[in-house]
């Protein structure tokens, strides 16, 4: 069964891939076993992240990017993420509405996911989803994040190129300083550029990017990041790339050639950076830390639900026999694992 689905996924079979993505999304044990087999076949895809405020035009731009990469005869997968309602646990996934033109093109695979409570703009398993698609020979993978605008910076660790999309007149200029969105972009797009205030948004972004360069120079002066956790969060991007700020009007198709050119330029810079073993190591370190963190949590969770462990712990807490700190440390020791 497992080998059969692996063969099908590797051959790009849409149904098998769709099912595997379901298993990954649902956190099924089989998914991880299959990912181990698929992993050696990854590393070939070009991964582009698209993030930005709700309504800025991410899906419409994604739609144009699909068309661009299809015109170069590349197989394109889209991973589109929308928020899960914290109240009902349900979600409406509507990013596909803007991509309907590609619905029956068998060189395009579009999959919608709900965040299911994960913060950061992706789902907790988006990197696994991208690995599976990569192994399946999808040559370009477009990851469209939840549009929240402030904290969804996970995508820059996963993507090779991150595009931040903004629209004028939404208070974006100020949001960008608060957010950390400024730091994650390889390319800025001010979409809906036919609207009033577009030039001002571009100017203010440029200004803030200049400030950002000064800050980074100061950070560099303080030496390399020593802490492991900081390394996990740190942005790994090719040195010497200055993020361009581009204007587009996606619904009219304006400015898209420039965007595609910038994407290709940045891709080349990324490929060049990959010749530096240290750059590759930094990216692999992030990839590992992400998987490690999730493995730890999963192990701990399955220990707690196994044989009433959680209940025993809480009972001891209730009887006043121990404090939660000691109990947590004991539980972690007991988790162990094969």
């Amino acid at each position: 069964m497992s080998t059969e689905i692996v063969q099908k996924v590797l051959a790009g079979d849409v149904r098998a891939t769709a099912r595997l993505l379901r298993w990954i999304d649902d956190g099924r044990g089989e998914a991880r076993r299959l990912l181990k087999v698929l992993y050696p076949r990854t590393g070939r895809a070009r991964i582009i992240g698209i993030t930005g405020n709700p309504g800025a035009g991410k899906s419409t731009l994604t739609d144009h990017l699909i068309r661009y990469f299809r015109s170069r005869d590349l197989r394109v997968a889209v991973v589109a993420i929308d928020p899960t309602s914290p109240f009902s646990g349900g979600a409406i996934l509507g990013d596909r509405i803007r991509m309907q033109e590609h619905a029956t093109d068998d060189g395009v695979f579009i999959r919608s996911f709900a965040t299911r409570g994960h913060l950061g703009g992706l789902t907790s398993t988006t990197s696994d989803v991208v690995h599976a698609l990569d192994a399946g020979g999808w040559q370009v993978i477009l990851v469209e994040t939840v549009g929240v605008g402030q904290d969804e910076v996970d995508v820059q660790r996963l993507a090779q190129t991150t595009v931040v999309v903004m629209a004028p007149g939404m208070g974006d200029e100020i949001q960008a300083i608060k957010a950390g969105v400024l730091e994650i972009a390889d390319i800025f797009v001010v979409n809906k550029a036919d609207r009033e205030g577009a030039d001002r948004t571009v100017r203010e972004l440029q200004m803030m990017l200049d400030l950002e360069k000064v800050t980074q120079a100061e950070l560099a002066h303080h030496g390399p990041v020593q802490s492991l956790l900081a390394a996990a969060e740190q942005r790994v991007s090719p040195a010497g790339w200055v993020p361009p700020v581009l204007k587009t009007t996606a619904v009219r198709g304006e400015g898209l050639d420039e965007l595609c050119r910038a994407l290709d330029d940045h891709h080349q810079v990324f490929l060049d950076a990959c010749r530096d073993p240290q750059f590759v190591q930094a990216r692999l370190r992030q990839q590992f830390l992400d998987v490690f963190r999730r493995t730890l949590v999963a192990r701990g969770w399955s220990y707690l639900v196994h044989e009433d462990h959680l209940k025993q712990i809480v009972d001891r807490l209730q009887r006043g026999e121990a404090d939660p700190y000691t109990l947590a440390e004991e539980a972690v020791k007991a988790v162990g694992g094969p």
Binding site: R15, A18, S88, G90, I92, G94, R96, I97, Q100, A103
Partner: peptide
Amino acid sequence: RSLRDAGMEVIYTGLHQTPEMIVATAIQED
């Protein structure tokens, strides 16, 4: 919306779908 409020994940594709588009979407989205 009602299905969302009942805790389900709902993929909505918009207007004017051909049966082929609906079938392809159903399969990609599993």
